[in-house]
Design a protein around this nucleic acid. Structure first.
Lengths: 330, 330
DNA sequence: ATGGCATATGTAATCCATTACATTATTCGC
DNA sequence: GCGAATAATGTAATGGATTACATATGCCAT
């Protein structure tokens, strides 16, 4: 593999001039630049970016910490991150933490060893990751919760949940069950808050028997719905805190012979692409997943490049999308 | 940020000894190692991997070229890649090509500029990517088609498609429509081959009017199904070449008042997680997505590390998963 | 024509860890 | 107890691009 020295030799110039011709062409004669370009082509030169990065102490790459890339929502956020990184000349390291602190810590080594310039964290902030909170490297949260410190990007989870439950209440529902994520999960906590606020506002007494905790998977949504439908005086609506669990719930309800939404309303959260195409299509909260990733990436790269330190919590707009799966209570 | 020199000073040793203590401890006294470790802790040392990588001309990272990370199937393959890369101490660069040759070529620069040691290609091989076929760097295809050269990993797409259509024929269907991917897509080509083989074997005359070309999205599956259901003497079964389009087709059929599978059988391909939880659940071909990614990654890293050059085409087993969406013809 | 200045190019130091080669310390055998 | 062999450590070169500083070239004004 030819190096800058080969180019310099081929062009009869010094490596300094070659470097300048390539990186800061305005510092070099038109003629020189042409000679360098010819030499580059002649020896098939590709700069060794490891060397450049070492010299400049920059890697021009960012690390995305994602709890699971197979989750469509996170995949969308990641796509948004990638598109901005690409535009700004950065590469993306994929750090799939599989929800493990260990893996997360291990991946953070990429920054500490200079292979990445900063981190975008997609896991919500549980509040006890002291290491990360004290991080000396640039870090931005892309799917924040109310606990998440700046700089971060999120939606108003509690507000969105409240809107959804308001929607169900407006449709006449009173017995509205919740299929939550893991009890300690900050997103679940925020959304649960919105759920209860909506119930309170409508004068509906909160009934713990109508709450089940899943793990965001369709299987857990199926299981939760099966249980909830067996409760005496069963709910007429299921508020699921993500789309996957809602899809699982639809399946469970249908298997029990219930018709959605006629016999049971079911709603989701996230608006992954499958929500619009499930049968029935799913009423949900649209999160601007790509936009959140993109915004987080912009903030991160601005920080890395020292272009103003954005230290705000960006709350992006969500949207209630009413589709077939929610309907009037019977 | 402290460097190896700081450690050497703190320990009263040379940088060479420090390096040895850390990388090849057996070359150093027990006592020395302890002194080095203490110094490392004292100055909070983290090796600069950019420097190490420059010296060794290795980056210990691989580039994954994926047509779209938001596609659940590719996300699963990527998850498989990541798990092996992790186990073997490599990082993963995410190269989302968005089906653009341009982006693909741009991402390949990562290898040519030494930021990645090799490439895993998830796009099927159209046969005209001369650049990549002549690549001087290690490259492995993870979702190959019949055209794909070794080393690569794939399933028997034609065989799987044939099995699926055989299954429909066995259930009594004769008018079996196909919802294909883009006409030129190698996976679509292979699967179309299997479709026709099955029809021929059953003595069913191929009817071009029963073929539609989608773009793998649910929307395109919906559109294709709508058209196919308007054909005179409409088909009793739809063979969709991926799960997303099948899910779109289910939605279209249901919207038309048809019951799946009672009035119309619909089958998919891939067995993404949503296939098991759609309503009705989807008969499909299970591809070992994670295993394909993992295998490809193993092969790639073996190549990178010079541990035998596996030059075979690995055909992993698929499986016909019969669920609710396929049923007897009416 | 010459000092002064801007522009273009060259020389060599630098980034940091690794490692070939050199040197010093230690152990073993007889 | 001494030379040979082995082990431990040190010195300095190396990887490839960038860049501070030095030098050379060209142009203008006086």
């Amino acid at each position: 593999m030819s190096s800058i020295i080969d180019v310099a030799n081929a062009a009869g110039l010094s490596t300094a001039t070659v470097s300048r011709a390539l990186r800061t062409p305005e510092k070099v004669t038109e003629a020189t630049r042409a000679r360098v370009m010819a030499a580059v082509a002649a020896v098939d030169y590709r700069p060794n970016l490891l060397a450049r990065n070492l010299r400049s102490d920059r890697s021009f790459s960012v690390l995305v910490l994602v709890p699971g890339i197979a989750n469509p929502f996170f995949a969308n956020v990641t796509a948004g991150i990638e598109s901005i990184a690409w535009r700004r000349g950065y590469s993306v390291f994929l750090g799939d933490t599989r929800d493990s602190r260990d893996r997360e810590a291990h991946y953070e080594q990429l920054v500490e060893t200079r292979l990445a310039d900063g981190v975008i964290q997609l896991s919500p902030d549980y509040g006890f990751n002291a290491r990360q909170r004290a991080a000396t490297y640039p870090i931005v949260h892309a799917c924040g919760c109310e606990l998440t410190q700046a700089p971060s990007v999120r939606i108003d989870n509690a507000g969105a949940a409240r809107e959804m439950v308001d929607h169900l209440i407006a449709a006449g529902h009173r017995r509205i069950a919740a299929i939550s994520g893991p009890a300690a999960n900050p997103h679940a906590v925020d959304r649960m808050k919105g759920y209860r606020t909506a119930l309170d506002a409508a004068g509906v007494v909160f009934d713990p028997a109508l709450v089940r905790f899943g793990d965001w998977t369709m299987g857990s949504g199926h299981a939760a719905a099966s249980e909830l439908l067996a409760v005496p005086h069963r709910p007429t609506a299921l508020f699921s805190m993500n789309d996957e669990m809602a899809i699982g719930a639809i399946q469970a309800a249908t298997a029990k012979g219930l018709r959605v939404p006629h016999d049971l309303a079911i709603t989701g959260f996230d608006d992954i692409s499958f929500a619009a195409h499930s049968t029935p299509s799913l009423t949900t909260i649209a999160q601007p997943a790509e936009a959140m990733g993109a915004k987080a990436c912009e903030i991160l790269i601005d920080r890395i490049e020292g272009k103003g330190a954005d230290d705000t919590v960006h709350v992006l707009p969500h949207e209630l999308i009413v589709r077939q799966s929610s309907g009037p209570a019977v």
